[in-house]
Design a binder for these strands. Structure first.
Length: 587
RNA sequence: GCGGCUGUGGUUUAGUGGUAUGACAUUGGCUUCCCAAGCCAAUUACUCGGGUUCGAAUCCCGGCAGCCGCACCA
């Protein structure tokens, strides 16, 4: 059993992750979040919200998971998120149809399926594997398609990313933020991709959760006001050059900027913030690196793009976050498809005096003179230089036809006007998180199997060493933050134990109660689900109103008064209180 | 999607053409019980469908799922 199997086995057994639709045989690419997994996921999302929504101020929105066709035509997903496949009739192997005709036509990826079929037929292309006949090309789009409304309705798609929901709301968001750049919006939600062959558990799903921020910034100013916060943060950077050399270097954000490894401050800030988030949810820094996209893998519109990658036992380095400067690509694409200007007006600090040469054709006279051609003539006049306009008779060519315009019909002058700002299409910085993958990685990094010396029991059959499975989840993300355990199943201990449960529950902590089995067994049960602290009520508690708190990782115990125990636990979980200060040590 | 391997309680495992072994876990009870102790009892399984057969969990075919390889991976 490798670590992946152990983690998945534990996740299944203890109620973190279950295969979806198991009752009916299951379906690949879908996972259910079981009670503890669902809670763990919420905890991770909540930390993300704290950092991005509350601290950075990128308000969260929620948009439909189904999108209409126009949105994905504009985003390029309808055309570009699919591949033409064609299968061999003999051996069944599937090939990219456009790749098969690559060396016959110049731009194979622009061809329709019928055109591809024709070329394959005309050139007698056979299966590269077995030489068999090839079937017709068909489109395999990674988006799930559906119909909106009855009777076929209009085409709709399950969104393949949450990002488009922010882009299409750009104008509304801009107004919401009172026309000021930069601003950002976030969304945590489900996205859907009809993966051809999902495997690797929760690493590649057909329905998955993304947490995305779209930050709209002034394209001329990519500095970040708080970059100093992370200047000394040291990261494992796997840059384009580093990948060529095969070396990852540890370098501070400040130095990476100075050396021009990261394109600009804004991107650098978000790389560092991503690092901060991942470590806070429990990713170990030595298994975390930031890999820069190589020039040929980067989308053509992106300036710079970095993936946060986490090292896993079975799958090696996997991408969990993408942080990209997407420039004005998305807004331009939606502007073009929707025929709506998507831009922001930026006022200058000081108005500028701008001198320009202005041509004013007199339409009142041009109209009667040139009738239907008047507008084209006027446009041609505007394109002329001062010198050309200074002639008595000006000649312009429209649609190959020459027109002579009297100088009386056009005025021109150099004008100086006050310009107080300009219109820009903002650039977008996009950190995009794959929550499911991050959750898996926190589980894998938290998973520990330690050998502990078995206690001398009354029965010597026990081996001297036994393994203890401990989920060393960060206390902040643990789905159960504290367990309350009466030492024995006796009502005199159960009653005060349940009082402590309500006390802690009222403090807003995730607490479980367990009186089944021996105390040691219950400790181990809680170790396995990652409960950081256990409170035990014993007979002494009845006399001195105190309990023991046991620390999951060290197995040490302290004795603490029941009065105020909820605040002690809260500090341990959320405020980094040191365990040994939580009470007087036992033994 | 193609090829290979695999599929037995919650987990893990033994096994055979005549409905199944064990372990751990779980539940209840007993035991003043602080790191999976012990004792008693209980619950839970042959991935699904079709075929061959008197009889299939076992043999054959197909589906589904898992793993590995290929292809795919905005």
């Amino acid at each position: 059993m490798d670590k992946y199997e152990k983690v998945i086995e534990l996740a299944k057994r203890r109620g973190f992750l279950w295969n979806s639709f198991e009752l009916y045989g299951g379906a690949a690419g879908f996972y259910d979040y079981a009670p503890l997994g669902s809670t763990l996921k919420r905890r991770i999302e909540q930390i993300w919200r704290e950092l991005y929504v509350i601290h950075e101020g990128f308000m969260e929105i929620e948009t439909p998971t189904i999108g209409i066709e126009d949105v994905f035509v504009a985003s390029g997903h309808v055309g570009g998120f699919s591949d033409p496949l064609c299968e061999c009739k003999k051996c069944g192997e599937a090939f990219r149809a456009d790749h098969l005709v690559d060396n016959i036509v110049e731009v194979a990826d622009a061809l329709s399926n019928t055109e591809l079929d024709k070329i394959i037929k005309d050139n007698d292309i056979k299966c590269p594997e077995c030489g068999g006949d090839l079937g017709d090309a068909y489109e395999f789009n990674l988006m799930f398609q559906t119909a909106i409304g009855p009777g076929g309705g209009r085409p709709g798609y399950m969104r393949p990313e949450t990002a488009q929901g922010m882009f299409v709301n750009f104008q509304r968001l801009l107004k919401f933020y009172r026309d000021k750049l930069p601003f950002g919006a976030t969304q945590i939600g489900k996205s859907y991709r009809n993966e051809i062959s999902p495997r690797q558990g929760v690493i590649r799903l057909r329905e998955f959760t993304q947490a995305e921020a779209e930050i709209f910034i002034d394209p001329r100013d990519k500095t970040h006001p708080n970059i100093e916060r992370f200047a000394d943060t040291s990261l494992n950077l796997y840059s384009q050059e580093g990948q060529e050399r095969g070396t990852v270097e540890q370098i501070t954000i400040g130095d990476a900027l100075k050396q021009g490894i990261i394109a600009h401050e804004f991107l650098a800030y978000h790389i560092a913030l991503t690092n901060h988030f991942l470590q806070r949810v429990g990713i170990s820094p030595e298994h975390l690196r930031f890999r820069q996209h190589k020039k040929d893998e980067m989308a053509h519109y992106a300036i710079d793009c970095w993936d946060a990658e986490i090292e896993t036992d079975r799958f090696g380095w996997i991408e969990v976050v993408g942080i990209a400067d997407r420039t004005d690509y998305d807004l331009n694409a939606h502007a073009k498809t929707s025929k709506t200007e998507l831009s922001a007006y930026i006022e200058y600090d000081e108005p500028k005096m701008v001198t320009s040469f202005v041509v004013k054709p007199n339409m009142g006279k041009l109209g009667p003179a040139f009738k239907g051609k008047a507008k084209a003539v006027a446009d041609a006049l505007k394109a002329l230089t001062q010198e050309e306009l200074e002639q008595d008779e000006i000649t312009v060519v429209v649609d190959g036809e020459e027109f002579v315009v009297s100088s009386e019909l056009v005025e021109f002058a150099e004008e100086t006007v006050k310009v107080s700002g300009e219109t820009v299409v903002p650039h977008v910085i996009e950190p995009s998180f794959g929550i499911d993958r991050i959750l898996y990685c926190t589980m894998e990094h938290a998973f520990n199997e330690e050998m502990v010396t078995a206690q001398e029991g009354k029965d010597s059959k026990k081996p001297e060493e036994e393994s203890r499975i401990v989920f060393k989840l960060q206390s902040e993300v643990a789905p159960v933050q504290v367990a309350v355990l009466p030492l024995m199943t006796k009502s005199e201990l159960i009653i005060p134990a349940k009082d402590i449960v309500s006390l802690i529950r009222d403090r807003g902590l995730l607490v479980s109660y367990d009186d089944s089995g021996t105390i040691g067994r219950r400790y181990r049960r809680n170790d396995e689900i990652g409960t950081p602290y256990s409170i035990t009520i014993d007979y002494e508690s009845l006399d001195d109103k105190s309990v023991t708190i046991r620390d999951r990782d060290s197995m040490n115990q302290v004795r603490t008064p029941i009065d105020g125990i909820e605040d002690v636990i809260y500090s341990l979980v959320y405020e980094g209180k040191e365990f040994k200060t939580a009470g007087t040590p036992v033994q």
